[in-house]
Write a protein that binds this DNA or RNA. Structure first.
Length: 591
RNA sequence: GGUUCGGUAGCUCAGCUGGAUAGAGCAUCAGCCUUCUAAGCUGAGGGUCAUUGGUUCGAAUCCAAUCCGAAUCACCA
């Protein structure tokens, strides 16, 4: 149990004993005490005033007295200022917390709760390489999965690959027309970039053809349909659906190139999946559910044979669920896949990490599932995140205005190398150790940068300004860890002992922050928000750094102090390491 | 037009389940390396919390309206 829960329990108990006639559901707030006042945690008394019909001062005095009397091991003293009861926790409590947990690598994690969650993330298209937006998605998905694991869930990471459809045919057609048999091998290009180039090529040609047609007096809408390259692409899509062997072969060949490229990128950013779904296998799913919906009168059929659902009563529109030719649409497939996931894994919750541009779609998906009375309907959760934009606006693959994932990773590693070389602290490292270090720091900076912001907010990335390595950043926390490690290396035969000395302000502050780790993980899990954790790790590092510069650890004033400070350093290192791991970031022993 | 989300320091963001004098980082300025890693620490300046009204002991936080920005409202995925 964390300390806030403990205080809440003890205070509620005191209230019940002091004011037996009071309502037992009486609620009160516990805050961290502001630094300008004396104390650790504060009970806000105003909410009790009305219910207990006494002045805040009197309530504070009575509760304070009772707390000290009944829990002398927990509370040292209290003071009341206006309506605030400030409680000071005993040094003994903090020291024993530290002594018990300083070397516990599981500190802050919850026991398994028996619930199973699937987190779907990444979900790339196989017609272009990954970009910065995908990185935000990948880091978010990965981190949320880890945070859920730490708070007791069994987690399955899944990915749906959008490997078919008109957009895939576009790069296929462009390759057929313009590649002249070129391959990633022959051009020494990474497969996903190679294919992406033909997707861009398609759009260039398509645009030119539209312009040409419009110049001859055809309307834009007609020109878009009549452009020869688009007609070829439409034909190819039909051939694909008919399973024409040459098209299937081309499709498999080009997708294969992309997967090779993706593998490299995923490996470099540390993304992985327990289960990968391919849309080419799932796009026919959901049709049986349409029939079920018709039988239940949730759906209705129009004269042309298309099937619809009317969501106007819920403030949405009419939505098509099956085309008149009997083929399924996006939403139908998704309902089918949702069912498959549930049937296959018996999951208790299904989390979709998808950009906020699909808020409407996901709302419809859940609503339809609910109207159909599907058992997993309420367990569908859309973890919606904001787009990453450039100062010039949205990134567009087909116009080539994207920050490429591979390029950015390479750039971050190069910057890490540059900083490291300037500082010159690891000159004795082997070449392979250096490469690993640059990767750790570069990726750490990038992941932290993307995760420290509330997921639901859109972010603007300026490629002109490189991602920082100082201040509220990944490397700052990594550095704090490396520094602690450098001290601990010298204390290899350390044996922890309880301390008898009074805690100094900065010592206590670090322990106070360490104590909150478990509560922070739970908060991050509850809100599916890694930025809560990122902020916490930063403040913990800051408070440790302040302590570090002010007090010596190796040459402490006494053996007792030295022992205490080593415990403090060990526990901070553990929390930083485990916390960063939950963000998907490694910490180096030296940097 | 409907729906949803956002607007806090020059910039990037915390704080939002109402609580004490609104916090970080970057940038600017001033200090700190004969002692454990200066990717660090200490301090200064910088704010009409978009606007207006309401709710109350108390509002950046809740409610309403307005203004600005974004997403979305496809027989595309």
């Amino acid at each position: 149990m964390n300390i806030v829960q403990l205080i809440r329990e003890v205070v509620a108990d005191s209230i019940k004993k002091l004011y037996p006639e009071s309502d037992s559901s009486l609620d009160f707030q516990i805050n961290e005490t502001k630094p300008e006042f004396e104390g650790d945690y504060t009970i806000v008394l105003f909410s009790l005033v009305k219910a207990l019909k006494k002045s805040p001062e009197m309530i504070g005095q009575e509760i304070g007295d009772s707390l000290i009397q009944k829990n002398p091991e927990l509370f040292e003293s209290f003071n009341i200022i206006k309506g605030f009861l400030n409680l000071t926790i005993t040094d003994a409590y903090w020291k024993s917390l530290l002594f018990k947990n300083h070397n516990d690598i599981c500190f802050g994690k919850q026991a398994m709760n028996g619930k199973k969650v699937m987190v779907e993330y990444s979900s790339p298209n196989t017609n272009k390489p990954l970009h910065l937006g995908h990185l935000r998605n990948n880091f978010l998905g990965w981190s949320v999965a880890e945070i859920l694991k730490a708070s007791g869930y069994e987690v399955l990471k899944s990915c749906i690959v959008n490997d078919r459809g008109i957009h895939i045919c576009k790069s296929m057609i462009a390759w057929q027309l313009y590649a002249d048999g070129a391959t990633p091998e022959s051009t020494h290009k990474k497969g996903d970039h190679f294919v992406g180039d033909y997707y861009v090529k398609f759009n260039d040609v398509y645009k030119a053809q539209i312009a040409e047609l419009m110049a001859s007096g055809i309307s834009e809408a007609d020109a878009e349909k009549q452009a020869p390259i688009m007609q070829k692409t439409q034909q190819m899509l039909q051939d694909w659906e008919a399973g024409v062997p040459e098209v299937m072969q081309l499709w498999q060949k080009m997708n294969g190139w992309v997967y090779e490229g993706f593998d490299v990128t995923y490996k470099s950013i540390g993304s992985d999946f327990d289960k990968t779904y391919y849309e080419s296998n799932t796009y026919l799913l959901g049709k049986d559910i349409v029939q079920e919906g018709l039988d239940k009168n949730v759906f209705y059929k129009k004269d042309d044979g298309s099937v619809w659902i009317d969501l106007t009563a819920d403030g949405l529109d009419e939505k098509l669920v099956l085309r008149k030719d009997g083929t399924s649409v996006y939403i139908t497939q998704d309902i089918g896949l949702a069912k498959q996931k549930y049937d296959e894994y018996k999951i208790d919750q299904s989390i979709y990490v998808i950009g906020d541009e699909q808020n409407y779609h996901m709302k419809v998906l859940k609503l339809i599932a609910q109207k159909l009375g599907l058992p997993y309907a309420d367990d569908i959760y859309h973890l919606s995140y904001g787009m990453v934009e450039l100062p010039t606006g949205k990134m567009k693959s087909r116009e080539g205005t994207v920050v490429d994932a591979d390029d950015l990773v390479a750039e971050m590693k190069a910057t890490a190398q540059q900083h490291t070389e300037t500082l010159g602290k690891v000159k004795d490292f082997e070449p392979n150790e250096l490469i690993e270090l640059y990767e750790t720091i570069g990726l750490g900076a990038m992941k932290f940068y993307l995760l420290r912001v509330d997921p639901k907010k859109k972010m603007i990335f300026n490629p002109e300004e490189s991602i920082d390595f100082h201040g509220f950043t990944g490397p700052f926390i990594q550095y704090t860890f490396a520094r602690i490690n450098s001290i601990l290396r010298k204390e290899s035969n350390f044996v922890a002992a309880p301390s008898n000395e009074t805690l100094l302000k900065l010592e206590k502050e670090v322990i106070y922050n360490l104590e909150q780790f478990g509560a922070i993980i739970m908060e991050a899990a509850k809100t599916l928000n890694p930025s809560v954790l990122a902020n916490y790790l930063f403040y913990l590092s800051k408070s440790f750094n302040s302590f570090y510069t002010e007090h010596s650890i190796g040459n402490a004033e006494s053996e007792d102090k030295k022992n205490l400070r080593i415990q403090l350093s060990m526990m901070t290192a553990n929390v930083l390491k485990n916390g960063m791991q939950l963000l998907g970031i490694n910490v180096p022993n030296r940097m």
